[in-house]
């Protein structure tokens, strides 16, 4: 039987579905569970955060008065910031919003956080632009505000890109693992050839079909060295490890076993994504622009999380990394048994 024919038959097994009745009933059950869990949670959290003001009664009057004045000023400030959060150019509280952003920028010292803050502000500019263009004001006024917003958006993006460059410069130089040159004795010649095939080309009956899925970062496929070969399959007695039960040490091992140079690539990926966001804004696709900004934010966040651990691992040298990877794979396989 030809591979394509077999694959085509397998594709048809997509017709196996649960009954519509089960799907609908299960959906209702799930919704009930989600919302009943949510309301219970809300009640518990409310109970925990209730403040007790009993101690106020014992304060002398002048101290109590001073405390109340400070609370009113702070409360007023906080409320005006909250009210300003959704304001757009032309509204009275917009200046408060900008002042708040500048303040946040000034009191943030970490480069990664500054970059992410910059993206948040760029995100705000893009949202404001969308809202301004939807307003029913005079065309001349709208155009002027929109132009100013576009200028500000470009500024924020440029600043964010600069910061990403700084993050890259400071990140440790991560040397990509040299691919293992030894061929595993268990791999046949055909299987070795399979390793060279691009992901989308391998025995796919859906040639030309876009491979969808929730992707983060570049969709470009990076070839990995083979660390292990598929061994005899585990029996059904494989240990069940819920994702939530992963311990910190297992997490660190799992991350240590990553061979891709993640931190600099992801930071560089964020810069590319920002370019795309800018291009999308020029074409007035604001929803896509906002999505790209969120994507860039995630990349910077991931770069920040991984680079610390990667640096620690690489400090011990390449051979030590390979050792850790082997131990991590063995640990994982032992956990599976």
């Amino acid at each position: 039987m030809e591979d394509k024919e077999l694959i085509s038959q397998l594709n048809k097994l997509k017709e196996i579905k649960p009954s519509a009745k089960w799907q609908e009933e299960n959906r209702s059950i799930l919704m009930n569970q989600l919302y009943s869990l949510g309301s219970n949670l809300g009640a518990r959290e409310t109970a925990k955060t209730k403040l007790s003001f009993k101690w106020l009664v014992n304060l002398p009057q002048p101290a109590m008065a001073a405390f109340l004045i400070v609370m009113v000023i702070m409360g007023g400030g906080i409320m005006s910031i909250k009210a300003a959060k959704n304001s757009v150019p032309g509204q009275a509280l917009y200046i408060a919003k900008i002042i708040n952003e500048k303040t946040q920028q000034a009191i943030t010292f970490d480069q990664e956080k500054k970059a992410r803050l910059g993206l948040t502000f760029a995100h705000n500019r893009a949202k404001e632009l969308k809202e301004v263009l939807a307003q029913e004001d005079e065309q001349a006024e709208k155009t002027e505000r929109a132009q100013q917003l576009v200028v500000n958006f470009r500024k924020e993006l440029a600043i964010a890109k600069e910061r990403i460059v700084k993050i890259n410069e400071r990140a440790p130089k991560i040397i990509a693992e040299e691919p293992l040159n030894e061929v595993d004795a268990n791999l046949s010649t055909d299987e070795i050839a399979v390793l060279d095939i691009e992901d989308g080309q391998m025995f796919s009956a859906n040639l030309g079909k876009e491979e969808n899925g929730i992707q983060i970062g570049d969709s470009e496929i990076v070839e990995e060295p083979v660390e292990e070969v598929a061994t005899e399959p585990q029996e059904d007695t494989v240990a069940a490890t819920e994702p939530a039960t992963t311990t910190d040490s297992e997490q660190a091992e799992g991350q240590a076993s990553t061979t891709e140079p993640v931190a600099t690539e992801e930071s560089a990926g964020a810069a590319d994504v920002l370019e795309e966001a800018q291009a999308l804004l020029e074409t007035q696709d604001y929803d896509a622009t906002l999505s790209k900004l969120e994507e860039a934010d995630d990349l910077i966040e991931q770069a920040g999380t991984v680079k610390g651990e990667e640096a620690a691992v690489l400090a011990t040298g390449t051979s030590a990394v390979l050792e850790i990877e082997e131990q991590a794979s063995t640990t994982f396989e032992n956990n599976d048994k």
Binding site: D190, E191, V194, M202, F203, I221, E224, P225
Partner: peptide, 16 residues
């Protein structure tokens, strides 16, 4: 599957 992409390709090849 918590495997590398190379391993997955070999696994799929063997499975098919």
């Amino acid at each position: 599957l918590d495997k590398s992409r190379g391993n997955v390709r070999v696994l799929i090849y063997r499975a098919l």
